[in-house]
Every structure is written in C-alpha cells, then in structure tokens.
Design a protein around this nucleic acid. Structure first.
Lengths: 142, 142
DNA sequence: GATGCAAATGCAAAACATTTGCATCTAGTA
DNA sequence: TACTAGATGCAAATGTTTTGCATTTGCATC
C-alpha cells in the first residue's frame, strides 16, 4: 500500500511520517511536470487538505535535502519548481514564447555522468536537463 | 575592437548600443560561471560603473529575450542566474552540500537535440544541463 | 494505551528578489 | 542639431520564500 511505502521512505531518511508529507509526496508522484510550491498548495486545497503554504515550502526543502526531490529552474515567472527525484528521468522542453513545458523521454546522460564523476571526483546523484526553443504553434505566429 | 563587436551584436538584435549593455555583456563574457543580477551589479560597482540594479534586471531580461543570454536555475538561494548563450557550451556541476559550482567541459547533447527537434517539431535554440552531487571535500566531511 | 521529547505545523510578520510607474536622459536617425 | 523611441534611475509595489514563536503531532519508551 502507498502509505506504507512512504512511511518506510520517510523513516529511511530520518523523517517523521506525517500526513502533510504524504500528501505532498503524492502530488509530486502524480505530477507529469515540475510544480511550484503554490501549485502543490492549491492542488491539495482542492482535495480539502488543510496545510499551510509555509509547510509546503518546509516539506519541499526537506525533500530536496534528503534527495527525494529536485529543485528545478525558474520557468514559471520566478517561482522555483520541484519534481520527484526518482529514477524515471524527466527532462523538459520549454517554449521560450508561450512558456509551455513538455516532457522529453529518454536521456542520453548516463554515460556522461560516469565520465564526469571520474574526471572530477564528485559523487554525482542527479541532474537536470532543460531544452529551450519554440513550440510548433509559436513558430507559426512569430 | 570589443566595443565594435558588441555594437554590431546589439544592432543586429534591434537594441540600442548603450554603455550599460556593454558593461553587462562584458561581465557575462568574463564570467566562468553563471551570475545573479546582483553579482553583476556589484561587480560593476567595483569598476565605478553607476547603473542601477533594476537596469541590470532590464538588460538581462532583454538579453534573454534576444537569446544573447540564458536564464539559469536557482542554485544560489532563490536568485536567478544568467550566463551568456554562446556556442561554447557551459555546463555545471553543483555540490549539494557546499553549493560550489564547477564547470564541466564538453557536451553530449548535440545529437540529442536534433532528435528531440525531429520528434516534437520544436525549434530548439539551447539547453541547460546541471549535474548534482557532492564534491570531494564534502564527501570526506559527511 | 499513556507519557515525554523532538520534530512538524500554522499563522503572521519579515526578508528577499524582481518588476513597475513615471520622470528624465540618451542613442540613433533625419 | 533636433526629434523620437527606447533606455535608465529611483522609489514604491509585487510576488516568493523564510522565520519566530506558540501549539500540535509522531514516535519511542514505558
């Protein structure tokens, strides 16, 4: 069961298993695209969850610290975006005109990461890749 | 001469060639790593340039719009970082503990970009890649 | 199941990054 | 040189994220 999953996930990282953390984790799991703290907050409000926006921020911070989540670039205005740091690599293609974000599948970086790790002695735990350009519709209208 | 370079660069993009823009462009050219608006502002203050922080923001915005610069992720607290969008790909390796940023050379993405462009009909103008991990020193201390 | 403690949360206020309105100035053009 | 659109400075406004503090809750221990 889901809830047991996350319970173990949290305790492995030394985190208490709270309802709010389960909720935020759940939203991130469902999300196809990176979300802002506010996106998550509003999304949970719709489901009648009553947690505060600052709690969402605190939960996201700690998820990032524990490497459950990645803090992403600044696509949507200036709000930070967050996504799950699971093995299913999620990369994105952002339209510079309409700001639409689209997922890109597969990822050419596994080998690259290994090479960089060897060259720099970093231990590499993840990466983010964003591609920029213009989507088909915006190309027409420009 | 440098200045003539940038004059043409600006007029090509329909931008006036102002002293402030030259200065900001210059700082970005020298920079090994992405900079925040404030970094640039402070850096120019040291050289006795007297432009305002909001001008720096406005210049960066327009550089991004004209694809002279890329607006980067949120590594340093929550401030956006900017770097030149020149052909010399600059990718970065960020230490999740001490936040140090190190450059990574070469880039495995040229072919990948072409494939994605074909699959999605986007016209791709650039990309950003960041690798995360722990630097050698921080690995020792953890 | 009850108890205690550290960690998590809500709320409001603070801190910080970025944008904007408006008056003034300046680069590029005729 | 004069004109005009665009660039800039300054201060105020906006939006995002963090923080202090009082209260609550999860979890380990009994």
């Amino acid at each position: 069961m889901r809830m047991t999953d996350s319970k173990m996930l949290f305790s492995d990282k030394g985190l208490k298993n709270t309802k709010n953390r389960q909720l935020v984790l759940g939203v991130l799991r469902e999300a196809e695209l990176p979300l802002t703290a506010e996106d998550i907050y509003l999304c949970l409000k719709e489901v009648d969850a009553t947690l505060s926006l600052s709690t969402v921020y605190r939960i996201l911070d700690i998820f990032v610290e524990k490497e459950l989540a990645l803090k992403a670039g600044v696509a949507k205005d200036n709000a930070a975006m967050y996504e799950l740091n699971d093995s299913s690599h999620k990369h994105h293609l952002v339209c510079l005109n309409c700001k639409k974000i689209q997922r890109v599948y597969n990822c050419p970086l596994e080998d690259f990461e290994k090479n960089v790790a060897k060259e720099t002695d970093f231990s590499i735990t993840g990466h983010r890749l964003e591609l920029y350009g213009y989507c088909p519709e915006c190309q027409k209208n420009l």
